[in-house]
Amino acid sequence: MSSLSKAFSSSIGKKVIMGITGLFLISFLLVHCFLNAFVFFNDNGLMFNIGAHFMATNWFIRAMEFVLMGGLLLHIVQGARLTFQNNAARPVKYAVANGQANSKWYSRSMGLLGTLLLIFLIVHLGNFWVVSRFTGIPTHDANGHEDLYAVMKKTFENVWLVALYALSMISLGYHLLHGFSSAFQTMGWNHKKYTPLIKCIGLWFSILIPLLFAIMPIAMYFNCIK
């Protein structure tokens, strides 16, 4: 095995992959959330559809879509592998384990939270990505852009889906709450002066981004966004 592939297959290397892909996914979330927030213009989705059109037609974004899918897959596969390996590192479990005495439940439950998010993602991709890429968006808006906004409105008429989206954003929040600062720790980016700042940003990121995402379907369901 070459030196570099050996590095990535070591325990630290495997975590670094989780950290890098995680940070990359965080950056995606930021972009995704920013564009989706266009629905709050309350212009019947015109701005939102402009954003969506740009994202769907820009060659760089399209290219990055593959990177994103790759990163996501890597994050999932590596996460699953780590979870299984870590499970195997303790073949006989404790009869009594008092984890809450020394760590946060969500930091011990990244695998579970990740699995919930994966289920959500499958639904979410089916709702929007498959429609926009493959089956096609049926209507156009006043600007002549494909009306992804209309698809959104239609989707979020279903109360169960709205509930699923909202609850999944809670999972996302906790996943981020651990993952954000954890990625920095894994990369060794630890500093007496900056680490508290990173933790603070991580906390607000984990609250605000999922909150914004969650508000969208709820607001649409209750017709607060027009």
Binding site: S11, I12, K14, K15, V16, L82, Q85, N86, A88, A89, R90, G99, A101, N102, S103, K104, S107, R108, M110, H178, S181, S182, Q185, T186, M187, G188, W189, N190
Partner: peptide, 28 residues
Amino acid sequence: FGNCTNTGACEAECPKGISLENIARMNR
């Protein structure tokens, strides 16, 4: 041994208070 997922339980339970900063330093 398993892989670290930065839960911080080790630091909390260490009888000598060894800090997680050491893990970051080692990663670096």
